[in-house]
Amino acid sequence: SPEVQIAILTEQINNLNEHLRVHKKDHHSRRGLLKMVGKRRRLLAYLRNKDVARYREIVEKLG
């Protein structure tokens, strides 16, 4: 489901952010981070168009 995919991506994004705080010059990982953020944004847009209630619920849960 989109909610699960968004939750997994959010966790991976948070982990990668911590990694990049330590390894500032790791541009390869930064590119992966940007791809993940874009994918999460697309999934959220899809969910917002399909079911606003589910969209609001996941945004509330994940912050």
Rank of each mutant, 00 (worst) to 15 (best):
S1H: 09
S1L: 07
S1P: 09
P2M: 14
P2D: 05
P2S: 05
P2Q: 06
P2E: 12
P2I: 15
P2N: 03
E3T: 04
E3L: 06
E3R: 02
V4P: 03
V4W: 12
V4S: 10
V4R: 10
Q5F: 07
Q5T: 07
I6V: 04
I6S: 00
I6D: 00
I6Q: 00
A7E: 10
A7S: 07
A7C: 15
I8T: 08
I8Y: 13
I8E: 08
I8R: 11
I8A: 09
I8K: 11
I8Q: 10
T10N: 04
T10G: 02
E11Q: 11
E11H: 08
E11V: 10
E11S: 08
E11R: 09
Q12G: 05
Q12Y: 10
I13Y: 01
I13W: 01
I13D: 01
I13K: 01
I13T: 00
N14P: 01
N14K: 10
N14I: 09
N14D: 06
N15M: 13
N15W: 14
N15G: 08
N15C: 14
N15I: 13
L16T: 03
L16W: 06
L16R: 03
L16Y: 06
N17I: 15
E18G: 04
E18W: 08
E18A: 11
H19P: 01
H19V: 04
H19N: 03
H19M: 05
H19S: 04
H19L: 07
L20Q: 02
L20A: 02
L20R: 02
R21P: 01
V22I: 13
V22L: 13
H23F: 06
H23N: 11
H23V: 04
H23Q: 04
K24S: 12
K24G: 13
K24E: 08
K24I: 09
K25L: 10
D26T: 05
D26V: 03
H27W: 12
H27Q: 11
H27E: 09
H27L: 09
H28E: 13
H28R: 12
H28C: 13
H28P: 06
H28I: 11
H28T: 11
S29P: 03
S29V: 12
S29E: 04
S29I: 13
R30A: 07
R30P: 03
R30M: 11
R31N: 07
G32H: 15
L33N: 01
L33E: 01
L33F: 05
L33K: 02
L33P: 00
L33H: 03
L34D: 05
L34A: 10
L34G: 04
M36Q: 02
V37C: 12
V37S: 02
V37E: 07
V37M: 13
G38E: 15
G38N: 13
G38Y: 14
G38F: 12
K39P: 00
K39E: 14
R40V: 14
R40L: 13
R40Y: 05
R40N: 01
R40T: 02
R41S: 09
R41K: 09
R41N: 11
R42K: 12
R42L: 09
R42F: 07
R42T: 06
R42A: 10
R42Y: 08
L43I: 06
L43C: 03
L43D: 00
L43S: 00
L44N: 00
A45H: 09
A45K: 10
A45T: 08
A45V: 09
Y46Q: 12
Y46P: 00
L47E: 00
L47C: 02
L47T: 00
L47W: 02
R48F: 13
R48W: 09
R48D: 00
R48A: 07
R48M: 07
N49T: 12
N49E: 14
N49K: 14
N49G: 08
N49S: 12
K50R: 10
K50T: 15
D51Y: 03
D51P: 00
D51N: 08
D51Q: 02
V52L: 14
V52E: 15
A53M: 10
R54V: 07
R54F: 04
R54W: 04
Y55D: 01
Y55Q: 02
Y55I: 02
Y55P: 01
R56V: 08
R56A: 07
R56G: 04
R56T: 10
E57Q: 09
E57H: 05
E57S: 06
V59I: 13
V59A: 04
V59R: 03
K61P: 01
K61W: 15
K61E: 07
L62P: 02
G63R: 14
G63T: 12
G63Q: 13
G63H: 14
